[in-house]
Simulated scan of single mutants.
Amino acid sequence: MQLSATFEAPGLVHVQGGNGIGKSTLVELCSGYLRPWQGIVRVGGMDAHDPRARAARRICRSQPALYPDMTVRDHLVFTTRCNGADLDTELIRAVDLGLYPWLDQAARTLSTGNARKLWYVMCTTGRFNCAVLDEPFNGLDHDTTHKIATEISGWSDNRLVLLVSHTLPPGLAVSDTFTLEAAGAAWR
């Protein structure tokens, strides 16, 4: 498949398409960990695999990757140190998403929904210019989905957010829709 697209900040771009069409591959290309066979992927004007681009973007993959024996708090301490973010700010975000009772519990004890909440917070800590989120609402209750949607909408006022999602929560203000199809892609 060939793809040529430019996404401009600020805004919220909903990336959609059928299963297996390449949405998660697009996320990996934006992350810089997967390099295209041909062409180039740029994030913020830099090659996606450039370490400077990594500092300016956040990638939230669909599957959480947590250390089973580390606590929720340990994960947040680790992530904030890696991103130069403020721990108190990220703890407040985690508590707001309902993780307070689990802050000192090992990740292996978390439910699917709570693991996804932690993963989302970890993947979006600190300052960034672009966020690429792959199915961030899967497995979450209505209240958490609403809180995350509100946060994403706020980011899109001054940053670029690419949101891969089969379904959108009500009220999420999408500025553009990008549909991946078997023959390429289409804007709506």
Rank of each mutant, 00 (worst) to 15 (best):
R93S: 11
N83W: 01
A48Q: 03
T179W: 06
M122H: 07
T109L: 13
A9D: 13
A149F: 05
H146Y: 12
E135S: 11
Q63H: 13
E181P: 08
M70A: 11
K117V: 01
A94H: 09
L110M: 14
N83Y: 05
T144Q: 03
P136L: 05
I21H: 12
V121W: 15
M46C: 07
S111N: 00
I59P: 06
E135M: 10
T179I: 13
R42Y: 15
W119A: 07
L168T: 11
P136Q: 00
C123M: 12
W119G: 01
Q63G: 11
L160T: 01
A131R: 08
D69T: 02
P169S: 15
Y120P: 00
Q105F: 12
V43F: 02
A53K: 07
D134T: 03
I40P: 05
T79G: 05
G11K: 10
V121S: 12
D104A: 02
A94Y: 06
S62G: 10
H146K: 13
A186V: 13
E181D: 09
L160W: 06
W102G: 10
A107N: 09
T125W: 00
D141G: 03
I40C: 06
L99W: 04
S24A: 06
E28F: 03
G11M: 07
Y120I: 05
D157Q: 11
A149M: 15
L163M: 01
R188Q: 10
T6C: 03
G98N: 07
R61P: 00
L140Q: 12
W187A: 01
L172Y: 06
E28M: 10
R159K: 14
L110D: 05
R108F: 12
N138V: 01
P68S: 15
R93T: 07
A5W: 06
T144D: 09
F178A: 08
E151R: 08
P68E: 11
Y33P: 03
P51K: 03
Q2R: 12
L110Y: 05
H49Q: 15
C60R: 02
D47H: 14
R108N: 13
L91V: 15
H75T: 04
R42F: 12
L91W: 14
V15D: 00
L66I: 13
A186L: 13
